[in-house]
Design a binder for these strands. Structure first.
Ligand SMILES: NC(=O)c1ccc[n+]([C@@H]2O[C@H](COP(=O)([O-])OP(=O)(O)OC[C@H]3O[C@@H](n4cnc5c(N)ncnc54)[C@H](O)[C@@H]3O)[C@@H](O)[C@H]2O)c1
Ligand SMILES: NC(=O)c1ccc[n+]([C@@H]2O[C@H](COP(=O)([O-])OP(=O)(O)OC[C@H]3O[C@@H](n4cnc5c(N)ncnc54)[C@H](O)[C@@H]3O)[C@@H](O)[C@H]2O)c1
Lengths: 207, 207
DNA sequence: CTGAATTTGTGAATTTTTTCACAAACTATT
DNA sequence: AATAGTTTGTGAAAAAATTCACAAATTCAG
């Protein structure tokens, strides 16, 4: 299938997981993998894995399994994770600083190319190759660089205003850490990471 | 319904969201709210909100809506978020430090009562009311305090080993930040927070 | 080359989740 | 107390997601 088939959101999440499992197989120089083995590693049922993969075409070999390198390649080109994607960060407080100094993003396909804060001077002591700018430079920066994704780690009170500014400057995807439901146009996607809700969920099922 | 009905996982997540919306209504001294209004605030359809609430019993008033205080009370007692829940943190690096200094958890019903790190002395300079212990004190601590939940923010290489230790000392719910799928007994619940996967997801749907 | 053993790909069946749509219950107004 | 207007609660319908189960394709051992 060369046409761009609509892949369900949940499948996209799982494809990311599969890709990470494949990384480890590649590291171990494993050449082929069956849906059974890969599914176990990814924590899903084999039939689901196979169904997910049909969105990318048919390229498994019956009786043998999938070629690890090819599968990896297919998933990553579908997900667009072949190239390093630029991201901006807004809010360099406790959490933002941790994100800034995190080396893992590069390995996972992302690069925070700049950070912004209402009080950048307070943040200057943090040594880092990534520049931290004042918020008044946000518009110009987003205009000159073609960034589509942003992470916001500002206090809840400021989050909606920051979203509005990001949206007005063309940001299309936002990862939000503030524990607040943010309003945004339908063509701008906001993914929320709410640690308290995750903990609450654990607490409920634990008893 | 007084019997403990099984509430679906997705409903539990949404109940957490509703609870947060209700907090704001309480702050504003709003007394009643309709499913329509609350659903809009929570970003769901009214029918879904009502269906979710039926797991808690019937206590809306037709023609009027729900009493905000009562609804809040019912959700929170179902979720067990009336009392402050103790949590331990393992790994006080960049991310763990941010979590430790986060004041927001208390407001959301959780309290990090202790942190553990393989190199606690490196972490001592961080001033905080929360003690940071060496890993060899983990077992004794978990035995004396009755903690069921843990957050792990250690490097990926160490994550599985930490899970094993936590599980062996009776931890039943784990919030995992390492970008790795961890093995655990079926009666121990692990929720993963994987920022790279969230970003990848955004990136895909943004283009 | 043969036959047993694997493993994919996928329609169909099943399960889960969401949405619809409306009677019943209540409010508010006059 | 009658009427008009809301809003819940919920079966039933629809949609979405998962799982089953098996024919077809291929491998592999001898
Ligand atoms: N720290 C955590 O572990 C943690 C955990 C869960 C959720 N969160 C959420 O993440 C967000 C950040 O938390 P934090 O602990 O890093 O907070 P923080 O107060 O340490 O940092 C917030 C930063 O945002 C900057 N800021 C404030 N208003 C701004 C604006 N209008 N524009 C740009 N920058 C602005 C501040 O200068 C500060 O540097 C909060 O919404 C918090 O609720 C944090
Ligand atoms: N920092 C981020 O923004 C970020 C973002 C996404 C994911 N993560 C993940 O979160 C985890 C922590 O990230 P980080 O940046 O804070 O790492 P870090 O290296 O700054 O901190 C890790 C801490 O864990 C401690 N540690 C190591 N081995 C241990 C063990 N066996 N037992 C107990 N403690 C041990 C170390 O002493 C250190 O203090 C990693 O798995 C990382 O991939 C971090």
């Amino acid at each position: 299938m060369t046409s761009r088939l609509k892949i369900p959101r949940k499948s996209i999440y799982r494809l990311s997981v599969y890709s990470r499992c494949l990384n480890r197989l590649l590291d171990n120089h494993v050449e082929t993998v069956s849906s059974d083995t890969l599914a176990k590693a990814a924590g899903v049922k084999p039939a689901q894995l196979r169904k997910d993969l049909t969105y990318l075409g048919n390229f498994g070999r019956r009786g043998l399994g999938y070629n690890v390198a090819e599968l990896w390649q297919r998933i990553n080109s579908t997900m667009g994770t072949n190239r390093l994607l630029p991201v901006v960060l807004v809010g360099v407080g406790n959490l933002g600083s941790a994100l800034l100094s995190y080396q893992g993003f590069a390995k996972e396909g992302f690069e925070i190319i700049a950070a912004f804060d209402a009080e950048p001077e307070r943040r200057r002591h943090r040594q880092s190759a990534i520049p931290i700018y004042d918020m008044n430079r946000l518009g110009a920066f987003l205009k000159s660089h073609k960034v589509k994704l942003a992470i916001i780690a500002v206090p809840a009170e400021a989050a909606q205003e920051v979203v509005n500014r990001l949206v007005s400057h063309g940001i299309q995807g936002i990862l939000n850490f503030s524990p607040l439901l943010l309003q945004s146009p339908t063509d701008v996607m906001v993914n929320n990471v709410n640690l308290a809700i995750e903990l609450e969920n654990l607490a409920y099922f634990v008893r």
